[in-house]
Design a protein around this nucleic acid. Structure first.
Lengths: 204, 204
DNA sequence: GTCTTTTTATGCGGAGCAGTACAATAACAG
DNA sequence: CTGTTATTGTACTGCTCCGCATAAAAAGAC
């Protein structure tokens, strides 16, 4: 099913994944409405008819871009989080990676999900962001709960509350990055966020 | 100087302040690019030429709207903050008011500054938001520092850090409100934010 | 080599938009 | 009543943009 077998017609001259990545750059930098299909077409290296054939209209393309983004850039903090052994290092890596990709390119500060898709008037985009926040929160909560099980965190620690604090801190980092807060300040906030999530009164 | 003296020509048929308030509703609900001048004209009750005559082009109007918004709706949390006596009640009122106006009208969730102006590609709008965040942070820091002076907070409490936590919590509330998080959840976050700001390890 | 299938390339059309020119209107000054 | 000044209303202009229709191109099938 994944095997592409022999294509019958003319082979496509683009790679769907990288085309979506290029589109993400444009949306991220310009926003949904201000990203014209000419900009997108140029960046994706495919004509407008090919875009419509492959992804549908502008809104459908945007939603496809959001899905792709969640799997790639958007999930680097969570991957960094999962890669660490101790819960302290995991949280630290999570926030540090958040700062990293929200301040990486000055042409598109902040987060494509948190700062661009949220600003859109497309209900699907907003619910997508909301659902993604919930997913992140659950993943962090699971890890925190495991840390409680291991005895790495005190038994009265509330994993749910800690995860909510973590997501809130992430949102704040994205919002600050968007308006040009210098990376050093954000790294301070990131370190602070780790200690806040682990702070003792995280019990219900 | 405030006296309007006798106007020489035809009297204007609009009130500049309320016109800006109406424009804020449109920008808040539709975003900058998707708010057409026809929409704005209809909401403000003045023809496009009058808009240009009074406020300049669309971008200039938007910046005027942001200034007006900061003085009115945008500062309700800070006014509620300043109106309370105890620092606990002040922070509580601050966050509660933030939740209030970011979830007040379902047609424009979130904050005009934090969720709309930040998403824009207008550099002036972004720096405006950044400057406003700094102002809020300073005002809260001053109040926290005064509370330390009064002995209402421990002498080793860091007002600067507490204010930064408060602004970050505010940003998170706005981001969550934007994507449709129910008000009850946000009120929980608001209460949590108060205790986080006051948490003891707020020392440098 | 010819047919079928899928993608690419060119170009068009209808709609919406920001900004403005021009004339009409409503006040005051004398 | 006449002239001046500031604002309002109508209509227009150039531009951009999204989506698609049509034709050419590039592969496999037989």
């Amino acid at each position: 099913m994944v095997e592409k077998s022999k294509q019958r017609g003319r082979p496509r001259a683009y790679d769907p994944a990288t085309a979506l990545d290029s589109a993400a750059e444009i949306f991220w930098a310009n926003g949904f409405s201000d990203a014209s299909l000419d900009d997108l077409s140029a960046a994706m290296g495919m004509g407008r008819p090919s875009i419509y054939n492959a992804f549908g209209d502008k809104q459908a393309l945007f939603l496809r871009v959001l899905e792709r983004f969640r799997e790639t850039t958007g999930s680097t903090p969570l991957r960094a989080f999962a890669a660490e052994d101790s819960i302290d290092a995991a949280l630290d890596a999570f926030f540090r990676q958040t700062v990293e990709y929200t301040t990486g390119d000055s042409s598109h500060l902040g987060c494509l999900l948190g700062n661009v898709a949220s600003a859109t008037e497309l209900p699907e985009a907003r619910t997508f962001v909301k659902a993604n926040l919930a997913l992140v929160e659950v993943e962090i909560a699971d890890r925190l709960a495991a840390a409680v099980q291991c005895g790495e965190l005190p038994s009265d620690y509330s994993a749910a509350l800690g995860a909510r604090r973590a997501v809130n801190a992430m949102l704040a980092l994205g919002a600050r990055a968007r308006v040009g807060t210098p990376r050093e300040d954000l790294l301070d906030d990131a370190a602070e966020a780790t200690s806040m999530v682990l702070a003792t009164p995280a019990a219900a």
